Amino acid sequence: MDIRQYIDSTYLKTPAMAGTTIKENNEVVRSLVNEAVANGYKLVMVRPEMVAFVKRLLCVEKSKVLIGTVIDFPEGEGMLFKKLDEANKSIYDGADELDFVIDYKAFKRRDFEKVKTDVIECTRLCLDHKKIAKWIIEVAALSDKEIISITALVKNVVLTYFSESDYFNVFVKSSTGFYKTESGKPNGATIHSVKLMLENSFPLPVKAAGGIRNYEDAVQMIRLGVKRIGTSSASEIIAGEQVSDEY
């Protein structure tokens, strides 16, 4: 199976996280873009401050590779106006797809109205600009019951407030890849969590991110019904190698 058009090739480390200079970090992003262009991946996923840089690189290459970014990352606890400001700036800079971290902590404390309002307004912003919105629910922080409920919340908001033609442009996404778990538990997508998402998101598509460490994992996710794979090890996975990175 050719999985390249399912791949969101991802680099979300800041220079401080990576232990690099800004210039060195920019070169990592440049390599990510070059690899995506050469291999025909669907999208490159970078932090908001890198979107304009990536846009310039892709314009030079006259490439159809899309640009994705993350909003309110990685905690998702920001006020709505901050999410919208960051999203607006990313759209202006050239982002095609915006992956919002849902306020899963608000959801866990049953502040459903905040979560619902965030989803409505941020999704509307994306769709009004003909962009794709993805909602990261952070499965490793949730129980099975919470995964089901938060996935259903996103779905029900979209079905209630947006038109049928919009459904395929709003994803539910598993993970940030930055959540810290205990005792070596998975911090990203698992077959179990993705099945729960798929069963409760339809007709919205699902993106599996984090924890996909080889080609077989990716194919299994796609055969389950996943429409995108988020990974920082795209070339290794395509080549059939086993990777150890959390994302």
Score class of each variant (00 low, 15 high):
Ile7Asp: 03
Asp8Gln: 09
Ser9Lys: 02
Ser9Met: 07
Ser9Cys: 06
Ser9Asp: 02
Thr10Ser: 02
Leu12Pro: 02
Lys13Glu: 13
Thr14Gln: 05
Ala18Gly: 12
Ala18Val: 06
Gly19Asp: 01
Thr20Gly: 06
Thr20Met: 13
Thr21Ala: 00
Glu24Asp: 10
Val29Glu: 03
Val33Leu: 05
Val33Glu: 07
Asn34Pro: 04
Asn39Pro: 02
Lys42Pro: 02
Val44His: 00
Pro48Ser: 01
Met50Thr: 08
Phe53Asn: 10
Phe53Ser: 01
Val54Tyr: 04
Arg56Asn: 12
Arg56Pro: 04
Leu58Trp: 03
Lys64Thr: 07
Val65Gln: 05
Ile67His: 01
Val70Pro: 01
Ile71His: 06
Met79Leu: 12
Phe81Arg: 07
Lys82Met: 14
Lys83Pro: 01
Asp85Val: 11
Asp85Trp: 13
Asn88Ile: 08
Ser90Asn: 01
Tyr92Ala: 10
Asp93His: 14
Gly94Tyr: 04
Glu97Arg: 01
Asp99Tyr: 08
Ile102Ala: 13
Tyr104Arg: 13
Arg109Leu: 11
Arg110Gly: 09
Arg110His: 15
Arg110Leu: 10
Asp111Val: 11
Arg124Met: 10
Asp128His: 11
Lys130Met: 15
Lys134Asn: 11
Val139Pro: 00
Val139Cys: 09
Ala140Leu: 03
Ile148His: 13
Ile150Gly: 07
Ile150His: 03
Thr151Gly: 11
Leu153Thr: 00
Val154Asn: 04
Val154Glu: 05
Lys155Thr: 00
Thr160Arg: 07
Thr160Ala: 09
Thr160Cys: 05
Tyr161Arg: 11
Ser165Trp: 06
Ser165Pro: 03
Phe168Gly: 14
Val170Phe: 10
Phe171Ser: 02
Phe171Pro: 05
Val172Arg: 15
Ser174Lys: 09
Thr176Ala: 11
Phe178Lys: 14
Phe178Arg: 02
Lys180Asn: 11
Thr181Asp: 13
Glu182His: 05
Gly188Pro: 09
Gly188Met: 02
Thr190Ser: 14
His192Asp: 12
Leu196Phe: 03
Leu198Arg: 06
Val206Trp: 11
Lys207Ser: 04
Ala208Gln: 06
Ala209Gln: 10
Gly210Cys: 02
Gly211Ser: 08
Glu216Cys: 08
Ala218Ser: 12
Gln220Cys: 14
Gln220Ala: 15
Met221Cys: 13
Met221Ser: 09
Arg223Ile: 11
Arg223Ala: 08
Leu224Cys: 12
Val226Cys: 00
Val226Gln: 04
Val226Lys: 14
Ser233Cys: 12
Glu236Phe: 07
Glu236Gly: 06
Ala239His: 06
Val243Tyr: 04
Ser244Trp: 08
Ser244Arg: 14
Glu246Ala: 15
